[in-house]
Design a protein around this nucleic acid. Structure first.
Length: 745
DNA sequence: ATATGGCTCATTTTT
DNA sequence: TGAGCCATAT
């Protein structure tokens, strides 16, 4: 279990180590790596101290180990840990890597700088960015905020949802981000990749311009700006470029196939004084093309660094041969491939299992049963992972795990800071840092009674441009019904301003104001949400600067597991495939391998299709010993209809000899019928599993159990068949008897 | 004119 | 679950 000791992954810069290479640094006698553990190719990579190195590495070939060992080797050879920069791609992977490094390198590791491109960009811009563009007072916004802005703009520009064809805000943001990362004009990107949207080109371009202006006007920055500004900083401020390049004498990049052009440029610029760069990548695992990643970066690397050394890692140290044969087969079906045949010496002859299941519920039960079997035979829960294409594919499984009492940790999907109540609280704090932050103002006004979108926008427009928005708010001539609310709000900001408190002190003041609103707004489930806020409080306690807290929450949102900490440890990992990148597990389930779900329904033939295939490759190569691939034969559509679906084409392509088929079997509930005699079920004709409950069976005060919400008490019933139940952990829920699977306790 | 509640519909992936 | 739309309440 990875535990973050501090909110940031970094060895932060201290005020004194500004640019000179830690004079007087004495290298440790040894940091304790044994290079005999390495194979020839790994040894080459590890022991190269100077000059550029390109490492082409297959799945499970010990990339991370190679990188960590190299760090150790560098330190043993007199390189100061402070001057090593380790760039990785995803948060989880970078945590995992630093954790491994920590075990090996002990105290030396805490002095290595490491993290994602975005967090390092933030660090450097904060420190050196004053020279350029934005200056130092901006608020970094996350995806959800960016969507909010686009939303706002869509309505103010008159692009309402009447036009079904108009792309969703998410698609628009992907386009904007894609065009930046690929250094393409938005127009070109649309014609190339979103041909079906060419009709809306003008609107999209207009929206994009407004989006950029909006951000600039309100001192906001999104993820892409971070990288763009980092690059600008390096290009346009020679003294800073010099300083940074000297500061980090050795740069290493993991998952290089996932970098985009900007990131490749950044690496080149950072290394310009020494060329001590080592990048590690695998073109078969490129799954971020949708946001501008370009695996030709790998091909280009030798051109950018002409004297570079190329090392290939082809031996797999992770999976047993049957798994490897299957994953090789997946990637061999690719239309465009760069040959690299992996082999292994790992023992194990268990073939991967492919299992067709009736529907998601059956799938969930199958997975839970297998998890229990694995656990009985000695596999710890945290060595078992269930992977899927999209966040919501695991909902059924989550319910099933809950009823079984199995703990799980979900990765990917909604972050803590993306939930409404967290954004509410953060909005107040953000305004203290950046009073121009229009979005946060808007959010806060909307909380007030008798204030809707129109009024909120009016007030925001009136004050956010003022020199002192707080003062402007105090003087704002609020009309009739909303007057009191605004006065209270104004008073809050005066209190906050006068207090001069630490972040946790500010939190207390904000909560004094927000608590009643909070309980009113989320009347049905505020107890559960309250826990999140308590977490926020404990996180904030670790900060002395509000600004750095705001930045970290945008870039590196805390997840529940790191904060709750000592909740027992043993947890199954549920993860989107994208978030599972770079990790490995003894047993892996890949679920939802149905046509239309994987590959994702809108993936076109061609490059998108190939990326989906690589995605399956990434998923399957996470497994060490046990690999299960399941596909439901029937899925629920959004309108609660069941639809028959086929097996994922990728699964169908695999030679049958490479896997073993298993039946989902063992389902004793009686409603399972063999798939051979399949008939499209009609909901009302289904055999009833239990006698149907009516309201007469559930008078007020009855204790009931719900598969997801747990145990609760009936508070109110209303004809014909709905009832309010108070659950311990989820507050009051209104349930419908026809759908809710309630049991009387 | 604006706020609010009920209804319908669709729902990628990440920093 | 949220976002958009429409009808009704204030």
């Amino acid at each position: 279990m990875t535990q973050k000791a501090q909110p940031s992954l970094f060895a932060p810069f201290s005020e004194t180590d500004d640019n000179e290479l830690v004079p007087g640094y004495r290298r440790p006698a040894t940091v304790g790596v044994n290079l005999d553990d390495l194979n020839e190719a790994q040894y080459q990579a590890v022991t190269t101290i100077d000059g550029p190195v390109l490492v082409i590495a297959g799945a499970g070939s010990g990339k991370t180990r190679t990188l960590v060992y190299r760090v150790a080797h560098l330190i043993e050879n007199g390189v100061a840990p402070e001057s090593i920069l380790l760039l990785t791609f995803t948060r989880k992977a970078s945590q995992e890597m630093l954790w491994r490094a920590g075990r090996l390198l002990n105290e030396s590791c805490s002095r290595v700088t490491g993290g994602t491109f975005h967090s390092v960009a933030n660090l450097l811009l904060r420190r050196y960015g004053g020279h350029i563009g934005y200056g130092s007072s901006f608020t970094i916004i996350d995806r959800a905020d960016a969507e909010g802005i686009v939303n706002l703009l869509k309505s103010s520009l008159g692009f309402t949802g009447k036009n079904k064809q108009f792309p969703s805000k998410r698609v628009i943001l992907n386009m904007i981000s894609g065009s930046i990362n690929k250094s393409l004009k938005l127009e070109d990107l649309v014609t190339e990749q979103y041909a079906h949207l060419t009709d809306h080109l003008d609107d999209i371009v207009k929206l994009e311009q407004h989006y950029q202006t909006f951000k600039y006007d309100h001192g906001l920055m999104d993820y892409d700006d971070l990288l763009v500004n980092w690059k600008r900083l390096l290009e346009e401020a020679p003294d800073v470029r010099e300083t940074i390049s000297r500061r980090f004498s050795h740069i290493m990049v993991d998952e290089y196939q996932d970098t985009n052009l900007i990131q490749a440029d950044i690496v080149r610029l950072c290394a310009h004084t020494h060329n001590n760069v080592m990048v590690v990548g695998d073109d078969s695992q490129s799954i971020y093309a949708f946001r501008g990643a370009d695996f030709y970066n790998i091909m280009r690397f030798p051109k950018v660094f002409p004297d570079c050394r190329i090392v290939k890692l082809e031996e797999n140290y992770r999976s047993c041969q049957p798994i490897l044969s299957l994953t090789n087969d997946i990637i061999n079906n690719a239309t465009e491939k760069y040959t690299k045949t992996l082999f292994t010496r790992i023992a194990g002859d268990l073939k991967p299992r492919v299992c067709g299941v009736r529907d998601e519920r059956d799938e969930a039960r199958f997975v839970v049963r297998k998890i229990n079997e694995l656990r009985r035979s000695g596999t710890p829960l945290e060595e078992i992972a269930v992977l899927f294409r999209s966040g919501f594919h695991s909902y059924k499984l989550e319910m099933e795990l809950n009823t079984e009492g199995l703990d799980f940790e979900k990765r990917g999907g909604l972050k803590l800071t993306e939930s409404a109540h967290m954004k509410d609280v953060l909005a107040f704090l953000r305004l203290l840092v950046n009073p121009q932050d229009n979005l946060s103002w808007n959010r806060i006004f909307l909380q007030l009674d008798k204030v809707g979108p129109k009024t909120a926008q009016k007030i925001t427009a009136a004050i956010a441009t003022a020199a002192n928005p707080f003062e402007a708010l105090r003087k704002y001539p609020a009309g009739g019904s909303s007057k009191q609310g605004i006065a209270k709000l104004s008073q809050l900001f005066i209190d906050l301003h006068d207090s001069g408190q630490s972040p946790s002190g500010l939190y207390e003041i904000v909560m004094g104001y927000y608590e009643p609103i909070f309980q009113h707004l989320y009347a049905d489930d505020f107890p559960k949400r309250q826990k999140d806020l308590d977490q926020l409080k404990s996180i904030m306690a670790g900060y002395s600067e509000l600004q750095s807290f705001i930045d970290d929450t945008a870039l590196d949102p805390p997840d529940d597991s790191t904060v709750e900490g000592d909740s027992g440890g043993e947890k199954v990992i549920l993860s989107t495939i994208h978030s599972a990148k770079g990790l490995e597990f003894d047993a892996v389930f890949v679920i939802g391998l149905a046509d239309g779900r994987f590959p994702h329904g809108s993936a076109a033939q061609g490059e998108q299709w190939e990326e989906e295939r690589r995605l399956l490759y990434v998923a399957a190569t996470r497994a060490r010993q046990h690999l299960y691939l399941t596909y439901p034969r029937e899925l629920m559509t959004p309108d609660r209809q069941f639809r028959r679906v086929g097996m994922s084409p990728f699964l169908a392509e695999i030679s049958p000899g490479l896997y073993e088929r298993v039946e989902s079997g063992g389902d004793t509930s009686g409603y399972y019928r063999p798939a051979t005699r399949y008939e499209p079920p009609v909901l009302s004709n289904r055999p009833k599993r239990e006698k149907k409950l009516t309201l007469k069976d559930l008078p007020v005060g009855t204790k009931v159990q719900h598969p997801f919400f747990g145990i609760g008490t009936v508070k109110k019933t209303s004809a014909p068949s709905s009832l309010d139940v108070l659950f311990d952990r989820h507050g009051i829920k209104t349930l419908h008897l026809d759908y809710a699977k309630l049991k009387i306790m």
